[in-house]
């Protein structure tokens, strides 16, 4: 993405709307969102289900296009990019971690971590090496040749994080990353994410509906009925 503008915010949304349906049945999933996120932030996106936080996350991740408004990623208007250009944006700058892990079944942890590098055209040997480093980072280098079915939920999510980090993305979007984990594993994953943010300066945007998990973040965005109603530190938003 050669068009990245230096000095711009990493993420800037101006009046983003997302509507589904028509007429009487019109649903305003997002109803005018203005928000900026800068490099190095750890943001928790919160709200009840149906508040629009997941829709917002999909638009942020260039997986979905808004009905109206402007979404600038590194100064580039994502809504104007073609489907393929959006794919390239995701490939180069974005890492995803999903609630349901979304690892390829019957495929080893190593191959799963390699996958984004395959699309980047990284050569086999370098790919292997990088994937092993990432698995080492999440503490699973001894599980490299296990398939997801042979790993616990927490391990699967760590493989997914390794996969998201393999391309050295500008931002990591995590959609309910601990939704399928017990509280002990949740805490481990969040500690890990917080360490990444603190030590490596990776920007993290995480959707969650559990207030206690928001404690790990530096900033909380609170959605309600498609609007951003609160924006501040965890303590401020909780108050």
């Amino acid at each position: 993405m050669g068009g990245a503008v230096h000095g711009a915010h990493l993420i800037e949304m101006r009046g983003i709307t997302k509507y589904y349906g028509k007429g009487e049945a019109l649903v305003r999933a997002l109803d005018g969102i203005d928000v900026t996120i800068d490099d190095g932030e750890f943001v928790a996106v919160m709200g009840s289900s149906g508040s629009g936080k997941s829709t917002c996350m999909n638009i942020l991740g260039a997986l979905d296009t808004p009905t109206g408004g402007e979404y600038l990623f590194k100064g580039v208007n994502v809504a104007r990019l073609s489907r393929d250009q959006q794919a390239l944006l995701r490939r180069e700058y974005i890492g995803f971690v999903f609630q349901s892990f979304n690892l390829l079944p019957r495929t080893s942890a190593l191959e799963n971590v390699e996958l984004p590098l395959v699309y980047r055209g990284v050569h086999r040997r370098q790919r292997r090496q990088r994937a092993m480093e990432m698995l080492d980072l999440v503490g699973l280098s001894d599980r490299a040749h296990h398939t997801p079915a042979e790993l616990s939920g927490g391990q699967q999510q760590r493989v997914a994080i390794a996969r998201a980090l393999a391309t050295d993305p500008s931002v990591l979007f995590a959609d309910e990353p601990t939704g399928n984990l017990d509280s002990k594993r949740s805490a481990e994953v969040l500690d890990f994410l917080a360490d990444l943010n603190r030590q490596q300066g990776i920007t993290i945007v995480m959707v969650t509906h559990e207030p206690e998990l928001a404690e790990w973040a530096k900033r909380v965005l609170w959605f309600s009925d498609g609007r951003l109603v609160k924006d501040g530190t965890p303590a401020e938003v909780a108050a």
């Binding site: 794919a87 984004p116 699309y119």
Partner: peptide, 16 residues
């Protein structure tokens, strides 16, 4: 379908 979704999210283009 889900696998295809994962690939697309990771940055695969339609042609890939």
């Amino acid at each position: 379908t889900r696998e295809i979704g994962i690939r697309l999210a990771i940055g695969a283009r339609g042609r890939e």
